[in-house]
Design a protein around this nucleic acid. Sequence first.
DNA 1: CTTTTATAAAATGTATACATTTTTATATGT
DNA 2: ACATATAAAAATGTATACATTTTATAAAAG
Lengths: 206, 206
Amino acid sequence: MGLYQRLKSDLQQGRFAPGRILKQSELAEMYGVSRIPVRDALQRLKSEGWLSGHGKRGVAVPLFDPLEVEDLYLMRTRLEPLLLELAAPHLSGEILGRAEDILDRMEIGNQLEAAEIGALNREFHACLYRPAGRRTLFATVEQLHQQCERYIGYQSRGLDYQAQSQSEHYEILSALRQGEIQQATCILGNHISAAGQALVQHLRNP
Amino acid sequence: MGLYQRLKSDLQQGRFAPGRILKQSELAEMYGVSRIPVRDALQRLKSEGWLSGHGKRGVAVPLFDPLEVEDLYLMRTRLEPLLLELAAPHLSGEILGRAEDILDRMEIGNQLEAAEIGALNREFHACLYRPAGRRTLFATVEQLHQQCERYIGYQSRGLDYQAQSQSEHYEILSALRQGEIQQATCILGNHISAAGQALVQHLRNP
DNA sequence: CTTTTATAAAATGTATACATTTTTATATGT
DNA sequence: ACATATAAAAATGTATACATTTTATAAAAG
């Protein structure tokens, strides 16, 4: 696994306190590599929102910012229903079946790691979105998801909205199966919006 | 000016043919630096859509993809009116005046370079959006703008929709001054949508 | 005691050199 | 002649070494 993946995973799991300033040499030693691959990884993580450029002072682990969460979920609320609508005509019964499998897997592993739940969650949405064949839109949505995951990792320690989230997921599938596309995109929008509000509230009442 | 800026500017001006594969050593020699800063720049440009990762074979200048343009403008159509709506309460008369100044500057320099027109255009929108104080949403919108500019640079050689675009800009300002926020966001949405369609059509009829 | 300036330490940026992987060209066998 | 295997090349990834910039420290002046 590349250094980029390792570092991201560690950031995701909250192994670096928000606000902390990371130095290249420090990370190089920590992971047993030279500074060159560290630089590459940092650059990527910075452009993906996992790290914030602290000017010339290096990079910092960004603080939790409720306003950022609001923005991320606002954008998702606007973009994901659109993407689902574009994908709907291509969603065969087989694809919907695969999506349901993913949901079931989430159900089973109730004591799953936050990272794993996040991965399955993303897989579920990707399963519904990818058939649209909209690479660019899909990539942007994926990026927003990833940026959200930093907060979700934090949230999952103190908040449990999994139950509600799951039932909404099943509702979306059901609507899609019945060809109620309008209905499905509507539920999806509310689903994302609700998740965002729960997260913001949790960040403001720690 | 950093190598990142120089390379991006050259890509923007179409100095590298779409589909061309760029090698690190080649670029290093071309710009008179070592491969290290080249790598940094390539990584950033890749994550911003200016270059596409060609797997392990290096990076490639992406081909013009009408579907990508459609996606970019679809996203902008959903996000920018939202951002303008959030900014509207903070748009003082002074700010609107500055926005108009930018429009006037675009009017004057009719024979401006494509890059300069693009920069002014972005400045105009940024002027209206920044007061919302929504850093994350703003950053995403900016990124979408930048990705569009690659195509606009190409378009500007064969298509002139500047006149219509300008008049719509003035309409938006006028609506904002009258407090017709709904009206302004609506014009903006149509404005972006129309620009996207013009661009897609031009790409399909070269 | 505070502020300023000079100096040292540390961190980032860049170049060169080496290692590993991937690609291409060549040779060999069927 | 074609396919496959093999060797040479070229390209990317990484480490070490050096240069430049930035930050912290300490000394000196007000």
